[in-house]
């Protein structure tokens, strides 16, 4: 499984692992969305620290979850992005969004 989900209180963390491409992003999206729709957390964390590879499909993954959690009035935080992943995020201009927290 490319994603492991843990919930505590009002927070939910999706630990993403392995490689994120168009193929795996679909599986991750389905798993995360099902969990979010079920428990509607106030805070959703996407943890990228165990992601070894990501192409632009990861941008869709982040933006899609951003919109979903906003729809439920919650907040998205993205953590653990490597320098490589940050490069793609910056190409997409996403660093302007206040959702990145690598200090966590």
């Amino acid at each position: 499984m490319a994603v492991r989900i843990e919930s505590s209180g009002e927070g939910m963390t999706a630990f993403l692992t392995g490689e994120i491409d168009h193929h795996t992003a679909r599986q991750i999206r389905e798993t995360v969305d099902a969990a979010v729709e079920k428990s509607k957390p106030k805070n959703l964390y996407l943890d990228f620290s165990e992601v070894g590879f990501m192409d632009s499909s990861g941008i869709g993954l982040i933006m899609g979850r951003f919109k979903l959690i906003q729809h439920y009035g919650g907040r998205l935080t993205v953590t653990g992005t490597s320098e490589r992943i940050a490069k793609i995020i910056s190409l997409a201009g996403l660093e302007r969004l206040d959702i990145f927290n690598n200090a966590q």
């Binding site: 992003a25 679909r26 192409d55 632009s56 499909s57 993954l61 933006m63 793609i88 190409l91």
Partner: peptide, 10 residues
């Protein structure tokens, strides 16, 4: 399906 048109930019 969550494509953001970044393929060629990357």
């Amino acid at each position: 399906e969550e494509r953001y048109g970044l393929g060629f930019s990357v």
